[in-house]
């Protein structure tokens, strides 16, 4: 039995993990999600801001983190546009993510009828994290002469209300890398806007010191953070039930895999301890 676990081909483990992921999605299984307090904090800030507030949104990710962060972006933007907030969005992380940003806003145009340059603007990517963020603090349209589609920005109606970081009411950086820290260092600390982070699950634990210190007002962590936000959206806006909420659906697969991994870790350790005991007794494992 011990040898069975040690000799288990790794492809077999991949196969059962694949089954644990695919089956719940194919069957359309769903489960209850209990929102975490740090996700609820982000939702409540957006909810409590008066309609038409200015949201600065850092779409700081690329395709390698798309499965985790796109559902988060979709849920967050839906909330912003339900509240009729103005969204100014940039990508300070990488060029590769610009297409995803354009797709996200194009989806919002279809769902809410929002117009680029009036209800939102997606300014795309410019190289240099620190200088991009600092330029937003002082004069947005002087630095971002055009939006991501090459349309001149200075004459856009949205910039009559938003000149620089001082006009921002809340900032969220949904990020694959460490850009939320850059937004704290060069953005929030200089312009004074409250901010939060949406991040991959890998970075989730490392942002808690900033949450504890109050430098971040909330955190959305990985697919679970996205599922939390979707759950809060559905609870507060029942019409959102009709929309595709992928993160919530993904939670069943996520839970199945976690249970599976726990079982495998326990079995592996039992096998290891048993083999060690046999070897110490001088027997053959």
């Amino acid at each position: 039995m011990t040898n069975f676990f040690f000799n288990l081909p790794r492809q077999f483990i991949y196969l059962i993990i694949a089954l644990a992921v695919f089956i719940p999605i194919i069957l359309g299984m769903e489960m209850d999600v209990i929102p975490a307090p740090e996700a609820e904090a982000v939702f409540n800030i957006i909810e409590d801001l008066p309609d038409g507030s200015v949201i600065l949104f850092g779409q700081d990710y690329d395709p390698s983190s798309e499965p985790e962060l796109t559902p988060m972006t979709t849920a967050f933007l839906r909330h912003c546009f339900l509240k009729k907030h103005l969204v100014v969005s940039v990508n300070v992380f990488t060029v590769d993510g610009v297409g995803l940003g354009q797709m996200a806003f194009s989806k919002m145009e279809d769902e809410f009828g929002v117009v680029s340059g009036e209800d939102y603007v997606y300014l795309g990517f410019r190289p240099g994290v620190a200088n991009s963020i600092r330029a937003i603090n002082s004069d947005i349209t002087n630095y971002y002469k055009t939006d991501a589609n090459g349309v001149p920005s200075a004459s856009m109606p949205i910039f009559e209300k938003v000149k620089n970081g001082k006009d921002v009411d809340f900032m969220l950086s949904i990020a694959a890398g460490a850009t939320p820290e850059a937004w704290i260092l060069y953005g929030a600390s200089e312009s004074g806007y409250p901010m939060a982070a949406g991040c991959t699950a890998v970075s989730f634990a490392s942002y808690f010191p900033f949450y504890n210190s109050g430098q971040m007002k909330g955190i959305l962590g990985g697919l679970k953070g996205a599922a939390d936000y979707e759950e809060l959206l559905v609870r507060n806006y029942p019409e959102m039930k009709e929309k595709s909420m992928f993160a919530k659906k993904g939670m069943v697969s996520q839970s199945w895999v976690h249970i599976l991994l726990l079982v495998l870790i326990i079995l592996g350790n039992i096998s290891f301890i048993r083999e060690r005991a046999i070897t110490r007794r001088g027997g053959k494992a």
Partner: peptide, 8 residues
Amino acid sequence: MARVSLFI
């Protein structure tokens, strides 16, 4: 959790 999310 993140890697599983990517596969999902």
